[in-house]
Amino acid sequence: MNSDYLHWQSIPTRWKDNDVYGHVNNAVHYSLMDTAINEWMITVPGFDPLESDQIALCVESHCVYKAEVSFPDTIELGLRVGKLGRSSVRWEAGLYRRSDGGLIAEGYFVHVFVGRTDRRPSEIVDPIRAEMQKLVIA
């Protein structure tokens, strides 16, 4: 696994994640990245997606698939911040198979923080920004 990722989550695959070809369907990779990012936002800096004055909208996402993974494998998902702007953040994720450390996929999500009501870009507030800084790669 890659030490450039600064936050890790273990995610067990589920029976329903496998598709007709016998491996985890590509859409699941996006869901896992989105879940890991939002879990971090809620638990680490305390972002409240239901009550916060601003929300984070995904404006771009991408995934490159490197290898198959199948139920009952466990995925180790590494997370880092590739770029932290005034109102945007580029989250980068690496998905690895726990059993052998093999790289499954690499992807990213770009979030733009906007006002909940006006949907206009707004500066990422502390403590969210301060915690994101800890995940920025050199």
Results as ranks from 00 to 15, higher is better:
Val28Leu: 04
Met33Lys: 06
Ala105Asp: 04
Ala56Val: 09
Ile128Phe: 03
Met132Cys: 13
Gln133Ser: 10
Gly78Asn: 02
Gly94Ala: 07
Arg116Cys: 03
Val28Phe: 01
Ile42Arg: 07
Val59Phe: 01
Ser61Phe: 06
Ile37Leu: 13
Glu123Gly: 11
Val20Arg: 07
Arg120Phe: 09
Thr43Arg: 13
Phe109Thr: 02
Phe71Pro: 02
Glu123Leu: 09
Lys83Ala: 14
Val112Lys: 01
Cys63Ser: 01
Ala105Phe: 08
Ile11Lys: 09
Gly102Lys: 15
Lys134Glu: 01
Gln54Cys: 14
Val136Met: 15
Leu135Lys: 06
Ser88Pro: 09
Gly101Gln: 00
His29Cys: 09
Met33Phe: 13
Leu135Val: 06
Val59Met: 00
Gly115Leu: 08
Asn25His: 12
Leu79Ala: 07
Arg116Glu: 04
Ile37Cys: 15
His29Asn: 10
Cys63Arg: 02
Ala36Phe: 11
Val114Ala: 02
Gly46Asn: 08
Ile75His: 08
Val136Phe: 09
Phe71Thr: 05
Asp73Phe: 00
Ala67Trp: 03
Ala130Glu: 11
Asn38Lys: 09
Gly22Arg: 02
Phe113Gln: 00
Thr74Ser: 11
Gln54Ser: 15
Ala105Ser: 07
His111Tyr: 09
Glu106Phe: 07
Arg129Asp: 04
Asp73Lys: 00
Trp15Asp: 01
His7Tyr: 14
Glu39Leu: 11
Tyr65Thr: 05
